[in-house]
Amino acid sequence: MMNTGSPIGEDDLQAYIDGKLPPDRQALVDAYLAGHPEVSARVTQQLADREALRVRLSEKFAEPIPARLRIANLQSNAALRRRGWYRSAMTACIFLGIGLAGGWWLKPEGVQINAARLSEAGFAANASDAYRTFVVEVAHPVEVGADDEAHLVTWLSKRSGRALTPPNLSAFGYKLLGGRVLPGGGAAAAQLMYEDDKGERLAVYLRAGQSAQTAFTFEEKNGVSSFVWVDQGFDFAVSASVDRAKLLPIATAIYQGMI
């Protein structure tokens, strides 16, 4: 019995009131209270207060549990709330989906959505501008003529930073006129000009660009049709004053045969 020797403290008295006194202290506290009537009176009073509070609240403790506090009911409330949340999230997703699909469906032709496509659109604009500038040029449609093809190839390859060979479009009736170097937004771009026997011209515009690959994008601006795509490190654009259906096989042939 370790504690038997230590004097009585306030914590002993509180534990006495709460009935939590270790058995070995009980006799000591009893003896102390017997010798200290004032403390004893206080402890007795506090014991009575404790009891009064318990009695006052005993009725509440005895009450049956209200239905709303049943765990099963609380759980189904929570499940309902969750389901409600889930349902509104689903509704939001559906409306978002409708909005996106509708927006896509209604989007104006040629308006590009994301950043990559924006730069592509700029590239396409460069290509069709270059086409329109030089298609009417009679005296100097090209800088280096096709008759000096070996020189043209080395020169364009050197200036555009990538090895390239002009595609052969004779199957479509187009003959290579020659090429020129143009500013292409950062890098130098090369324009290869072709002409058919009626004098209709077609330009292949290319620029060393991203290594990504994209699908064909069609654009028409002021009667100039262009197909634009990215492949094998080149941005490609084929522009001519023909309609989409006529230009598509040419673009496909260039895509398949180039490089």
Binding site: L57, K60, F61, I65, L69, I71, A72
Partner: peptide
């Protein structure tokens, strides 16, 4: 469930404390 049983056993005490 075990959870429901264990929680409901404490409800009278919780109600008494809350009411006080």
């Amino acid at each position: 469930s075990t959870m429901a049983m264990r929680l409901e056993a404490e409800i009278p005490a919780l109600r008494r404390y809350a009411f006080a």
